[in-house]
Amino acid sequence: MTTVTDSTDVRRPQRVVTGAAPAANGARIGTSGRGFQIVSAIVLIVFAIIWLIPSLFALKTSLTDNGVAALGAGSILKDWNPTLHSYASFFHAGDIWNWYIASAITSVITAVLTVFFASMAAFALSRLRFRGRNFTLLLIVLGIMIPTQVLIVPIFQELNAMNLLNTYWSVIFPQVPAVIAVFIFKQFFDGIPADLEEAARIDGAGRWRVYWSVILPLSRPVLAAVTILTFVGVWNNLLLPLFVLTNPDLMTIPVGLATVQSSYGQRYADIQAGAILAALPLIILYLVFQRQIVEGVTGSGLKG
């Protein structure tokens, strides 16, 4: 996988140049390089601050009194009496707990099923020979191109016919066939040398043992990346749960938040606290698994 995080790898050419091409222009390039560095850094810092402002402003608002927040952005910025009142009232109202539970259950189950089933399918495609293999590969490529969002109406009807509307399964099942996951796993498995299986095979291990005890343990990084990305994708999905979950007790975070927007009116601090609370688990997840998330996003973006 591409190690995006390790971008220090591409070192500035100047340093090498001063070694390779002696004295003559080494110094000049060195200085221009430093000037470029400074300009780059300033441009980047300005934009990074612009990029951080909306989140920080939301955070600041969520820590402001509703009355002060209603007066406008200027009052929010000038206010220095931070309060956790909005968070407290959110937790007190109780809905947020239901939303967290719904989002956690659906995201975890979908991630587990997707990773398990997709890696099994990828193992078959990477390691086993069978009739219809090329056709199956074709189905995978076709599946990647299907825009699942556009299928929302037939999926709704199918879940309705299965009597699954307003159950967590209605959010889980349609998100399990993430074809891109099969693709990512297959690519990774293809890169695992065959010799590693030989020993297991000589020991009499069957296909399941090879998959479970040889391939999967060697695939931890890609397993982690796909698990996290699936989790994030399901947690953030709005379209599907919006239409298949109408029972307020079962709503996932994004659907619940959509109702906050319309029912909270001018309680800006409360609304922003809700926005932060919905994002909080993902912010933590991002800070912990930064590398896996960036690598996974890059991998699926480039290959999907």
Binding site: L238, I253, L257, A258
Partner: peptide, 17 residues
């Protein structure tokens, strides 16, 4: 700064904006 917003739910970014 640049990548973090991408992992946030659309609901959060919409409420913020």
């Amino acid at each position: 700064a640049f990548f973090m917003p991408y992992v946030l739910p659309s609901a959060t970014i919409s409420l913020i904006w």
